[in-house]
């Protein structure tokens, strides 16, 4: 019976076109069961953010997304007072001779509270999925803000008090290690590391995302990507690049890779001019390893 639930999760991921290798399904399953946030780390473009999207879709609930950036603070993540409305309200009440205390209570009430993603997620009428994307980009200060939400499912607003979650949201945090996250944050989460996929997994992903792709082309693309990732690049391409490339080539109705095509479309895969240059220099060798040139001649 218990294994059924796990396989349900697997099917759920599968149903949304997400190919997993067991570890991902297990982490998602446990995060849901233990009601813990899930911290997902891995290189860029391996489908970290996708997990949250897929979960929201499968649970048929809202995905609330908080994109982190340097300088993100609590007013953008948790809550903010709607100052303009407060002022207008005060203006309207002027001359009515209202009790100051009552007025103050009114001003700092739910009505004038702007809910930012985190508060929004915990006060959501049904269980939502909260995606805190690229947490490592935010400052360390912000991490500490999050701790209260992550472990106690509540947000404290000095003027009002503590707001507890109506429904514990499913929190997914992602990061790609531009900065080491604090021990405190890690402890509160389950951890999942997603690496670049194996050849088989990548092929399965390509097939599921680009169904019309030619079998041979798909295989060649994945083999090429695998070799490409072995190179020392500034920005190693992820799965999303593979999918983009596969889409591009499939839409050109190609059935196999050749050197010219690769050269022309390299910009889809590599986003750094130095990388493109290095790769162009080593292209023949790369293609040989992939087994492309031998077939052509």
């Amino acid at each position: 019976m218990k294994s059924e639930e796990l396989s349900q999760i697997k099917q759920m991921l599968h149903g949304q076109g997400y190919i997993d290798d067991g570890a991902i399904a297990m982490s998602v399953f446990l995060a849901m069961k233990l009601e813990k946030p899930l911290l997902v780390e891995g290189p860029a473009g391996v489908g970290k953010t996708e997990i949250a999207k897929v979960m929201a879709k499968a649970m048929k609930t809202d995905l609330i997304r908080l994109q982190c950036y340097e300088g993100l603070d609590s007013t953008h993540a948790l809550y903010e007072w709607n100052y303009q409305h407060q002022l207008l309200y005060l203006k309207m009440q002027e001359g009515k001779g209202q009790d100051i205390k009552a007025l103050e209570e009114n001003i700092f009430s739910d009505k004038f509270l702007l809910k930012r993603p985190v508060l929004h997620a915990i006060t959501h009428p049904e269980q939502a999925v909260l995606l805190i994307d690229e947490i490592d980009r935010a400052d360390e200060e912000f991490e500490s803000f999050l701790l209260e939400v992550l472990s106690d499912w509540q947000v404290t607003i000095p003027e009002i008090g503590t707001i507890e979650a109506t429904n514990k949201p499913q929190i997914i945090l992602t990061g790609n290690r531009t900065r080491e996250l604090s021990e405190a944050l890690r402890r509160r989460c389950l951890y999942l590391w997603i690496d670049y996929p194996t050849f088989e997994k990548e092929l399965a992903i390509v097939k599921s995302k680009v169904p019309k792709i030619d079998q041979k082309l798909g295989t060649q693309i994945c083999a090429f990507m695998k070799e490409l990732r072995q190179m020392k690049l500034e920005k190693t391409p992820g799965i999303s690049e593979t999918i983009d490339w596969a889409r591009a080539l499939a839409s050109m109705h190609l059935t196999y890779l050749d050197k010219q095509t690769v050269e022309d479309t390299l910009g889809v895969v590599l986003k750094d001019w130095q990388d493109i240059r290095h790769t162009q220099d080593a292209l023949s060798e790369l293609l040989e390893k992939t087994g492309v040139t031998s077939r052509i001649g």
């Binding site: 067991g22 297990m26 290690r177």
Partner: peptide
């Protein structure tokens, strides 16, 4: 796998 996702907290 379950133990791993619960216990291991870094790459």
């Amino acid at each position: 796998e379950a133990l791993r996702s619960v216990i291991a907290k870094s790459q």
